[in-house]
């Protein structure tokens, strides 16, 4: 706790107006929680999963170093995205390094799906919400194709389903963007919080 307080105070002296304490705290906690849950999940589902992570010092410290590099970028005034990216990336590598091929792909698609979910909830621009939905659909496609590669490599049902997802995504993008355009013409805003005509 003390180190966190200090690291918050020190940049504040340099940059008076950027206090992104809340989001940084939340990300740090969530990374910690994800790592803990992930390692325990690895321990419970895989025999020797936890020991493998810990024994493989090089990889672990590589990932921790990656996160530290991100933190340093942040503290010297780098882009805020740097640390988020670094933490997510290192968390992802820790979680998937000792898993099988299929689980890696599935974890990546879960990560992309959650990122799309975050963007869908967080962004106020309607078009960016649509972009996030496209990201989620892509994650689903990745999932389906990973399954079709590793579980069903002869009949390729996953790829077939991915083709249908592709067409639905194209239709969704066309109609959704047309709706956004028309909304913009009528209300001259694309802010999601302003679209509250049906709220009671």
């Amino acid at each position: 706790m003390i180190t966190q307080q200090q690291s918050v105070v020190a940049p504040n002296a340099l940059k008076p107006k950027t206090t992104k304490l809340g989001i940084n705290l939340a990300i740090a906690y969530s990374v910690f929680a994800a790592a803990v849950v992930g390692t325990f999940a690895g321990k419970s589902f895989a025999p020797n999963g936890f020991e493998l992570v810990v024994a493989n010092h090089y990889d672990l410290w590589f990932c921790v170093g990656l996160a530290l590099v991100g933190w340093v970028f942040r503290s010297v005034g780098g882009h805020k995205g740097a640390i988020i990216t670094m933490t997510i990336l290192s968390c992802f590598i820790i979680l998937t390094l000792n898993q099988g091929q299929l689980v890696r792909y599935l974890s990546l698609s879960a990560l992309l799906f959650s990122m799309g979910m975050y963007g869908m909830g967080q962004s106020r621009n309607a078009v960016r919400v649509l972009i996030s939905i496209e990201l989620m659909l892509n994650a689903v496609n990745l999932n389906l194709i990973a399954f079709s590669r590793y579980v069903d490599p002869i009949q390729l049902k996953g790829q077939l389903f991915a083709i249908f997802v592709l067409t639905v995504a194209a239709a969704e993008a066309a109609v959704g963007l047309a709706i956004v355009l028309q909304l913009y013409r009528n209300t001259s805003t694309v802010d999601m919080n302003r679209f509250n005509l049906l709220k009671w």
Binding site: A34, V37, G38, A41, G42, S44, F45, A46, P47, L95, Q99, G100, V103, L106, S107, A110, F113, S114
Partner: peptide, 8 residues
């Protein structure tokens, strides 16, 4: 999702 997915 990760807990549901992972494991050998």
């Amino acid at each position: 999702l990760y807990v549901a997915i992972s494991g050998e």
